[in-house]
Simulated scan of single mutants.
Amino acid sequence: MKKTILYFCIFFLISIAAKAQDGDIIAKADGPFMEPRFNYFLKTILLFNEYLDTKNGSFNTTNLRILHPIGDKSWNLRFDLPLISTNSNSINQTGLGDVGAGISYIPYFKKDDGFAFRTRIISNSAADPSFGTGKWVVIPAGFYARYFRHKQFLWIATVEHSQSFAGSSNRSDVSVTLLENNFLWFFGRNWLATDVGLRYNYVLDGFQNNAFLEFGRKITPTNLAYVHPSVAFGGEKSYNFGIEMGLIILF
């Protein structure tokens, strides 16, 4: 199973790279990575709150995410500052989670499709062991995006792997591969999205999958809000159900 997933990831990236040799790069304003929900070319502030119900209690994460394009805007920096609250056995705790930073690069896209790469580093910086993994984690990822039906629909496929490389020897290693498909339907100032993530945890030797349904709306041309409930499934699922609400500011 492990080799099958890894081979699939490699094949996925090679196929996209081969496709990228066809056609010319076009103006960034016309590409699928310019959509407000996943905009790589504008400065972005994303503030969201996610509640997760688990078998050991609940986790609530309030996250501030900042994205900043650099250079010719094919590059993008990302910073995440999570504040986590837990409620387990009637004990409430709140503190800083694992702070993360990343960089994205879009080497190619056309009017209707394109692909990007991203690498993130999650630090072992949580204020309490229950707020983080206790590890430093590197997360490389590849994305393929494609419009359908005259930009009415957008598909974003993701291959991502999380791997710990340092941190507390008393905590479990992190080794997880994610295959994700996100479909968005745009209508008026609104969008509706569905997502299924197949996530395999090599340490636990089991799946930690999830799926969500998202509804979002443009409040103004540069301010958006969304809500999405989610449910987890698989033999080693990390939570039962959750709900996330967010506000996106583009400038």
Rank of each mutant, 00 (worst) to 15 (best):
Gly23Asp: 09
Ser85His: 08
Ile26Glu: 09
Ile25Met: 13
Glu50Leu: 12
Phe12Met: 06
Phe12Gln: 04
Lys19Met: 08
Ala20Met: 04
Asn76Leu: 15
Asn56Tyr: 08
Thr62Ala: 13
Leu52Arg: 11
Phe33Gln: 03
Lys19Gly: 10
Tyr51Ala: 02
Asp72Pro: 01
Tyr51Leu: 05
Ala20Phe: 00
Asn89Gln: 14
Phe79Thr: 08
Thr44Leu: 10
Leu77Pro: 08
Gly57His: 08
Pro32Gly: 09
Lys55Met: 10
Ser104Trp: 03
Ser88Asp: 06
Phe12Trp: 06
Asn49Tyr: 12
Ser85Gly: 12
Phe79Trp: 09
Asn60Phe: 02
Gly100Arg: 04
Gly23Ser: 09
Leu47Tyr: 08
Leu67Tyr: 04
His68Trp: 15
Ser104Arg: 05
Asp98Ala: 08
Ala20Arg: 04
Lys43Ser: 13
Arg78Gly: 06
Lys55Ala: 14
Asn76Glu: 12
Pro82Val: 05
Arg65Gln: 11
Glu35Val: 15
Phe11Ser: 11
Asn89Pro: 02
Leu52Ile: 00
Gly102Trp: 00
Phe33Ala: 07
Phe33Leu: 07
Asp30Phe: 11
Leu83Ser: 10
Gly31Leu: 03
Leu47Gln: 06
Ile84Cys: 00
Ala20Thr: 09
Ile45Arg: 03
Leu42Asp: 15
Gly95Lys: 07
Leu67Trp: 02
Thr61Pro: 04
Ser104Ile: 01
Ala27Trp: 05
Lys19Asn: 09
Phe12Pro: 03
Ile91Thr: 14
Gly71Trp: 08
Lys43Ile: 07
Pro69Gln: 07
Phe79Leu: 14
Ile84Leu: 10
Ala18Glu: 14
Ile26Ser: 09
Lys73Gly: 01
Met34Asp: 09
Phe48Glu: 09
Asp22Gln: 15
Thr94Ser: 14
Thr54Arg: 05
Glu35Thr: 14
Ser15Met: 07
Ala27Cys: 06
Ser15His: 06
Gly97Val: 03
Leu96Asp: 06
Asn92Ile: 15
Leu64Ile: 11
Val99Gly: 05
Leu77Asn: 11
Thr62Lys: 01
Ile25Gln: 13
Ile10Lys: 02
His68Leu: 11
Leu46Ile: 07
Asp98Arg: 06
Asp72Glu: 13
His68Val: 12
Ala18Gly: 12
Arg78Ala: 10
Phe59Asp: 00
Ile10Trp: 08
Leu67Gly: 10
Leu13Cys: 04
Asp72Val: 09
Asp24Ser: 14
Ile16Cys: 00
Arg65Cys: 01
Leu52Pro: 01
Ser88Met: 12
Leu46Met: 07
Pro36Lys: 12
Gly100Phe: 01
Asn92Leu: 14
Lys73Met: 06
Leu81Ser: 04
Leu13Ser: 05
Ile25Arg: 14
Lys55Asn: 15
Trp75Cys: 02
Ala17Gln: 09
Asn49Val: 06
Asp30Met: 10
Met34Thr: 14
Trp75His: 10
Lys73Cys: 05
